[in-house]
């Protein structure tokens, strides 16, 4: 299948999944049931940024499926493919919102799920000063815990904020990666759709720090592309759904680096099979320059450890 068709297929799968879970929400909770993510003034941030409309009820959430449908235009042109990626993002947000409808606490340790506004505000200053030089989204599954831990710890040592999605969370735990917001490694969730919680971080950054008016999608995308130094590492076999998520990332200006053989697109979608080079490849692709030179001491030394408490037995 060619790349664009893969993206369209993934987007249609995302739409089907969203339709399914919304139907369940309607059946179990009714159309008038309230829809909201915890601790945010931006409703469903992706949809709010794209349309300027806040979703408050399940009925409105059901209506938002039309946004997804309208973004999937199966014509093999780049803009259509990127829009299809955005459709997947919107569908993912619908799925995730529905999870919060169907359950009061859809996420539990170690996963954090939705990232609240206060946390984003706290990230704002270090992002602007370059103290957080980049945002890595590590998704999928590495061949082993060791390579996963190596990559994540490397980001950590460089002060990069890393969000984890999928099995790589377990691999990070197995690999003794210390996690937590202060340590700049945040596991989001095991489903691919939970990747949307980092997308909304970028999008809320545009609304909060960039002062972009909700509804001005083009400007939101431009802000993310120019100002949010994020990128994606997709490890392990890539489903159509993941590929179409990747198209969404590219639409936001975030390059995708994978260990799989894919149809590469220079600077945007790259294959790097050597795990020792994933970090360097990713930083170059996102044009991230690390300010501080690494200090050759045995323990990873970086801002990510500022919040770490040394426990007695360590």
């Amino acid at each position: 299948m060619n790349l664009f068709q893969t993206i369209f297929t993934g987007s249609k799968q995302a739409l089907a999944a969203a339709e399914g879970i919304v139907k369940k929400a309607v059946e179990e909770k009714g159309r008038d049931h309230k829809v909201a993510f915890p601790d945010t003034a931006y409703s469903l941030p992706v949809i709010y940024a794209a349309t300027g409309k806040k979703i408050t009820t399940v009925a409105e959430l059901e209506g938002a499926l039309d946004i997804v449908r309208s973004l999937i235009v199966e014509e093999e042109m780049l803009d259509k493919a990127l829009n299809s990626g955005l459709a997947t993002a919107v569908a993912a947000e619908i799925v995730e919102a529905a999870k919060y409808v169907l359950s009061d606490a859809p996420y539990s340790e170690p996963c954090v799920g939705f990232v609240s506004d206060p946390i984003i505000r706290s990230l704002g200053v270090p992002l602007v000063t370059g103290d957080i030089p980049g945002v890595a989204v590590v998704l999928g599954e590495c061949p082993d815990a060791e390579s996963a831990a190596k990559v994540i710890k490397d980001y950590q040592s460089k002060g990069i904020m890393t969000f984890l999605v999928g099995k790589v969370i377990d691999q990070a735990i197995e690999g003794n990666v210390k996690m937590g917001l202060d340590l700049r490694v945040v596991p989001l969730g095991y489903d691919v759709t939970s990747v949307i919680h980092v997308v909304t971080v970028a999008i809320r950054a545009a609304l909060i720090f960039g002062g972009v008016k909700p509804g001005n999608l083009a400007e939101v995308l431009q802000y993310c592309s120019d100002r949010v130094p994020a990128f994606v590492n997709a490890f392990g076999p890539l489903s159509e759904l993941v590929v179409s998520c990747g198209a969404g990332a590219i639409a936001l200006g975030f390059p995708v680096i994978t260990d799989q053989t894919v149809t590469e697109v220079p600077t945007l979608l790259l294959t790097q099979k050597d795990y020792d080079k994933v970090v360097k490849t990713s930083l170059e692709a996102r044009k991230i320059k690390i300010k501080v030179t690494e200090i050759p001491i045995p323990v990873a030394f970086a801002a990510a450890f500022e919040g770490e408490r040394i426990r007695k037995n360590d």
Binding site: L3, F4, L78, E264, V265, P266, T271, Q272, K280, T281
Partner: peptide, 23 residues
């Protein structure tokens, strides 16, 4: 547009890539 950690340089690969991808 070639990532120096992937390479190769001085090749038609980027052109081939964007054509194959459909961009």
């Amino acid at each position: 547009v070639v990532n120096s950690h992937i390479g190769p340089m001085q090749s038609a690969k980027p052109l081939a890539d964007v054509i194959v991808a459909g961009v």
